Amino acid sequence: MASVVIVEDDPSIRTALQHALEEQGHAVATSANGLGALDLVVRTEPDAVLLDLGLPDIDGLKVLAMLRGVSTVPVIVITARDDDPTIVAALDAGADDYVVKPFGVDHVAARIRAVLRRGTSAGEDPVIRVGELSIDPRARRVTLAGAEVDLTRKEFDLLFALASRRGEVVSKRTLLAEVWQQAYGGGDRTVDVHLSWLRRKLGETAAEPRYLHTVRGVGIRCAEPDDD
């Protein structure tokens, strides 16, 4: 399991999250403020950081920026701020994902697994494989059954965002923020149109999906054809 640093000033949330993640086998260290978090991350080099934005000493976005100056550790923002400018600002500042309070521990644990799958060291193979579909983020190259698939920049980014969370349902709001850095509100059509183009290039349709499955009212899930 992973080593996780929790940065949260609310002791009840911090303790509950720590105990729940430890029960799932994670090694957990905690900090109640930004300066302590920076020191903890540098000293322990964790696999992932859960970062609250409402800290007592330094704003969480500033902590995130400082973390990015010293570490590439995956950071999941956990916050009560659910406004789109804050979410976009966090992603632009280097957050790998975000979770809005209140949240379930299983949901947070799934996000941790997702960012760890997406994060690969220099010595590891960065290519994501889902069935016969291969996505190489370094070369920005996609192949299906060995044949290259010609994608636009946004189509590639959309596919990567979904494939890197293989098996998980990703909301359109998350896709809008990550792929388009776009505030949510009337933007579902943007995702739908690009998803339609992407499906066509992968040889599937919404009615007969192979890799990209719509979960009505929730989001999109990327899975192997045999997984569904």
Rank of each mutant, 00 (worst) to 15 (best):
residue 97 D to P: 15
residue 138 R to L: 11
residue 133 L to T: 07
residue 69 G to P: 00
residue 168 E to P: 03
residue 109 A to I: 09
residue 57 D to C: 08
residue 194 H to N: 12
residue 15 T to S: 12
residue 148 E to P: 05
residue 4 V to P: 04
residue 51 L to I: 06
residue 19 H to L: 13
residue 183 A to V: 09
residue 135 I to Q: 01
residue 192 D to H: 02
residue 227 D to I: 03
residue 148 E to I: 02
residue 17 L to T: 15
residue 205 T to W: 02
residue 124 E to R: 09
residue 7 V to S: 03
residue 137 P to D: 04
residue 225 P to H: 09
residue 170 V to A: 09
residue 5 V to S: 04
residue 154 K to W: 00
residue 90 A to I: 05
residue 57 D to Y: 07
residue 23 E to S: 08
residue 73 V to W: 00
residue 149 V to C: 06
residue 9 D to T: 06
residue 208 E to T: 13
residue 140 R to K: 12
residue 193 V to H: 03
residue 187 G to H: 10
residue 118 R to P: 00
residue 211 Y to A: 12
residue 145 A to H: 07
residue 184 Y to K: 07
residue 205 T to V: 06
residue 28 V to I: 13
residue 124 E to M: 08
residue 53 L to V: 07
residue 180 W to T: 10
residue 101 K to T: 14
residue 156 F to H: 03
residue 177 A to W: 04
residue 99 V to L: 15
residue 185 G to I: 05
residue 153 R to K: 11
residue 159 L to R: 02
residue 50 L to K: 01
residue 36 G to C: 11
residue 36 G to K: 01
residue 114 A to E: 02
residue 137 P to W: 00
residue 166 R to D: 12
residue 21 L to E: 03
residue 227 D to P: 00
residue 156 F to R: 00
residue 167 G to N: 07
residue 202 L to R: 04
residue 114 A to L: 06
residue 141 R to E: 09
residue 102 P to H: 11
residue 88 V to F: 07
residue 89 A to Q: 11
residue 30 T to Y: 01
residue 226 D to G: 09
residue 150 D to R: 11
residue 138 R to Y: 05
residue 55 L to T: 00
residue 189 R to P: 02
residue 44 T to I: 11
residue 164 S to P: 09
residue 105 V to C: 07
residue 205 T to P: 10
residue 155 E to Q: 15
residue 20 A to N: 08
residue 110 A to Y: 06
residue 148 E to V: 10
residue 197 W to M: 10
residue 138 R to M: 08
residue 215 V to L: 12
residue 17 L to G: 00
residue 160 F to C: 04
residue 202 L to M: 04
residue 189 R to K: 13
residue 98 Y to D: 09
residue 37 A to W: 02
residue 198 L to W: 01
residue 29 A to W: 08
residue 191 V to Q: 02
residue 151 L to A: 02
residue 46 P to N: 10
residue 87 I to W: 03
residue 168 E to S: 12
residue 129 R to M: 10
residue 169 V to R: 00
residue 174 T to F: 13
residue 177 A to L: 09
residue 15 T to C: 02
residue 163 A to P: 07
residue 84 D to Q: 14
residue 180 W to L: 08
residue 106 D to Q: 13
residue 65 A to V: 11
residue 63 V to C: 06
residue 31 S to V: 04
residue 107 H to R: 15
residue 45 E to K: 11
residue 46 P to W: 03
residue 158 L to H: 05
residue 84 D to T: 14
residue 221 R to H: 08
residue 143 T to R: 06
residue 117 R to V: 12
residue 160 F to I: 00
residue 208 E to Q: 12
residue 59 D to N: 14
residue 120 T to V: 14
residue 89 A to V: 08
residue 210 R to H: 14
residue 140 R to T: 10
residue 171 S to V: 13
residue 50 L to R: 03
residue 119 G to E: 13
residue 225 P to G: 06
residue 188 D to R: 05
residue 72 T to P: 02
residue 202 L to V: 05
